[in-house]
């Protein structure tokens, strides 16, 4: 039996704790998209969960620290990754004499899904 709309309103808590099964997760996220009340609750519960996470903080192992130090170099973030669409457009227009490759790489970056 699928949960009714009223039931869905009560899933914000378990959603924020990543404690939903896949079937209910899909239902709730569809609901969440259009429900400001649940959006607000989810954010608040995620903030609370963040504090639960803080309570378990542990010193970072050296290997992890070394890895993180190298992250920007390994998956470089081009400066234009944070540009607006219009900035990007101007940049691409401005470099028309440049290589097609740059255009392609810009296009590829901007076509990435908003969230992984």
């Amino acid at each position: 039996m699928k949960p009714s709309g009223i039931d869905l309103h009560h899933l914000a808590g378990v959603y924020a704790l990543n404690a939903l099964d896949a079937d209910e997760l899909a239902l709730f996220e569809a609901h969440l998209h259009g429900c400001e009340l649940c959006q607000r609750e989810v954010v608040e519960f995620c903030e609370t969960a963040g504090l639960l996470a803080l309570a378990t903080a542990q010193p970072i192992p050296q290997r992890l620290r070394n890895f993180v130090d190298a992250v920007p170099g390994k998956c470089g973030l081009p400066r234009w990754a944070s540009m607006s669409a219009s900035q990007l457009f101007r940049r691409v227009l401005g470099s028309l004499e440049g290589t097609q490759q740059e255009f392609d790489s810009v296009a590829e970056e901007t076509e990435q899904p908003r969230h992984a």
Binding site: A16, N18, V43, E47, A49, A53, V71, C75, H115, A116
Partner: peptide, 28 residues
């Protein structure tokens, strides 16, 4: 941390704290 670096341009200040955002990614 790789995801945080890559997703950083998509973070919107004022719509959830950095701590809450990153804790959510880590826990998930």
């Amino acid at each position: 941390f790789t995801e945080v670096w890559r997703q950083a341009p998509r973070y919107e200040p004022g719509k959830g704290s950095v701590k809450g955002w990153i804790a959510t990614i880590a826990h998930r």
